[in-house]
């Protein structure tokens, strides 16, 4: 087994084995979705050309991806830094980039089942009806475009310390969720907030899903924003690492 495969396997197994983490990460968006489903207010119907039930499900998929990305990296990674394990790994032959990449990949692996689970809830309790191909494409597109959320979680884990990691993750989750229009359609927001939403990655993530449901083309601008975010976050992780190295605390 090559070192990178061994490390990847180790990370994934460790992630899968922590039940509490899995239940919270996977369960949270689902519970949240259920709460929204119960709250049958008419304002939810104002979702443009998308039926509000489908709209809600896509938003919750997007929210779930965001939550899973943030929690997979976030607190777990900063705990690892605090314990000294991250530093110990740096004195083994595996390069730092592969450590970061493995973390992002492991987060991606957690994101996929979250998206699928929200879809299942949508199809059963949520009253969403879609062609089989759309269900599949929706999961695939939303998953692939979740990379910036996985990267964001890793950035948070690299940046904040173990004590503030949980608060930071929770804060980011709701701020991005709310202003990105995952809880309320962006079209129902005041114009200031509407332009703010278009600057956030999860707004564009959500829009990719909605385009699939509407049957319109996947807007290139959405992909572009998500790729730009991923690049910016990767750069921030690199700068952060460089800074810690200079400070001697990496």
């Amino acid at each position: 087994m090559s070192p990178l495969v061994a490390f990847g396997r180790f990370e994934v197994l460790r992630l899968v084995r922590s039940w509490r983490f899995i239940i919270i990460t996977v369960g949270f968006p689902v519970v949240f979705y259920m709460l929204f489903l119960g709250d049958h207010t008419p304002s939810k119907a104002v979702a443009g050309t998308v039926p509000w039930r489908a709209y809600l499900m896509v938003s919750m998929c997007s929210f779930g991806a965001l939550v899973a990305g943030l929690t997979s990296g976030g607190a777990r990674l900063s705990a690892e830094r605090a314990s000294g394990w991250a530093r110990q790994l740096r004195v083994t032959p595996i390069p730092t980039w592969s450590y970061v990449l493995t973390k992002v990949s492991a987060s991606m692996l957690v994101i996929l089942p979250v998206i699928i689970l929200v879809e299942i809830v949508g199809a059963t309790f949520g009253g969403v009806q879609l062609a089989a191909r759309i269900w599949f494409e929706l999961a695939a597109v939303l998953w692939v475009s979740s990379v910036p959320f996985a990267a964001l979680g890793v950035l948070v884990g690299f940046t904040v310390n173990a004590e503030t990691a949980f608060a930071t993750v929770t804060g980011l989750m709701f701020v991005l969720g709310y202003f990105g229009g995952l809880f309320n359609p962006v079209s129902s927001m005041p114009s200031v907030l509407r332009s703010a939403a278009t600057a956030l990655p999860n707004y564009h993530h959500d829009q990719l899903g909605l385009s699939l449901i509407q049957g319109t083309a996947l807007g290139l601008e959405h992909w572009a924003v998500l790729v730009a975010y991923t690049a910016a976050i990767a750069l921030a992780v690199m700068m952060r690492h460089r800074k810690e190295e200079l400070k001697g605390t990496a």
């Binding site: 070192p3 490390f7 460790r14 314990s83 000294g84 032959p93 595996i94």
Partner: peptide, 24 residues
């Protein structure tokens, strides 16, 4: 490591050693 254990949390000691071994 100061207060930290220097080890990854939530994993068996044998698993950690087997991983480290495979990195070399």
């Amino acid at each position: 490591t100061g207060a930290g254990s220097g080890l990854p949390p939530n994993v068996r000691v044998a698993t950690v050693l087997r991983l480290v071994q495979r990195l070399y």
